[in-house]
Simulated assay, not measured.
Amino acid sequence: MPTTNFSDHSSRRHFIRRLTALSLSPWLPGCESWFAQRIAIAAHAWPGYEFLFLARREKWLDNSLVDLIETTSATESLNALLDGKVDGAALTLDEVLTARASGLPLTVVLVFNISAGADMLLARPYIAKLADLKGQRIGFEQGAVGSLLLHKALDASGLSMAEITAVPLTIDAHFQAWQQQQVDALVTYEPVASRLLREGAIKLFDSRKIPDTIFDVLAFRTDRLGFSRAPAIRHLVLAHLKALEHLTKNPQDAAYRMAPRFKLSPAQVLSTYKGLVIPDRSNNQRLLLGSSPILLNSARKLSAFMYESGKLAHENDLTGLIDASYL
């Protein structure tokens, strides 16, 4: 019969301690701890996602369970999902619907935030109102929330996409494009938006005009959900909620710790959250649970709008969109 060789009694005791710690870990309940599989998550810079990075910095996020990968944009995160390089990603709900329509089944397990002003259309001072966007160069991220907000802003102005010059730009290129005079207006979001407002940009439209439309969520490839990854997913959700609680209870300290990644002062960091509704665990349950979850109803309306505006070839089959069991 094969046996395990231990070099000394010390190594045996260390091995037993590790097994005991795993079995008692609050992050890995029950026998799941024995089969926990590491997960990879993609996320780009956005205030609603920043709690993941704060949790990693403060070691509330176990790197042996979660590989948190920073991307430059939602487009890069989606590509990583499509290529199978990551198991899940931080995305907007419309990005999830777009991916599902293209044949990549995704399931939402957590709502990071609801945008209530943090996504916005900014313009140069010579553009005083939405109607003045006619003929202007407008930068936005294609296939992302930028495209959605631009369509809504143009609807409000009575303009069509054919009456503007669309300039596709991922979020990492927004600030430079503005500085280099490549665009007259820009659909963008925090923390870039605060930097552009300090540069003299004027806000023409924001997500307060389209309430309960822009949700940021944690979505997983549906084929990567299951028993072996469940402990890591639950751990990730708990780490996010712990970091959110830290911001709620100690906002100045949390902002100080977040400031370097935002490239903003702590006071400016806190101001970026004014346009966001960030649900805690109980509010996540309110959004994701029930016979007719709030998020599912919002997704149904959003899917219809995206289909009518030509962003989807067909309305989304929302079966399997939500799994609240990781909360």
Rank of each mutant, 00 (worst) to 15 (best):
R195E: 05
V108K: 03
R261C: 07
K59M: 08
K249Y: 11
A21R: 09
W178I: 05
V86N: 05
L186Q: 07
L106R: 01
K85T: 06
A101M: 10
L122K: 01
N316V: 10
G200V: 12
G226S: 13
I41Q: 02
L110R: 03
F112R: 00
L302I: 06
T3G: 04
D253V: 13
T165G: 09
N63E: 14
S160G: 11
L312S: 00
G290F: 10
L106K: 02
Q182K: 14
Y307F: 09
W27A: 09
T71K: 06
T165N: 14
G117H: 06
L236T: 01
I41C: 02
L247Q: 08
R18N: 08
K59Q: 07
S309V: 07
L318S: 03
I214C: 14
E50Q: 11
A162Y: 01
A36S: 14
S207W: 11
D172F: 09
Y307N: 01
F205L: 07
F220C: 03
A254L: 14
Q285W: 06
S115C: 05
P26V: 13
R195H: 05
M306F: 03
Q182S: 12
P266I: 15
A89Y: 04
S292V: 15
L19N: 15
G88F: 09
E315K: 05
F51M: 11
R18H: 07
T20I: 15
A43H: 04
G48H: 03
R38Q: 11
A101D: 05
L288H: 00
T20C: 15
A259P: 01
K59E: 08
S309T: 05
T213Y: 03
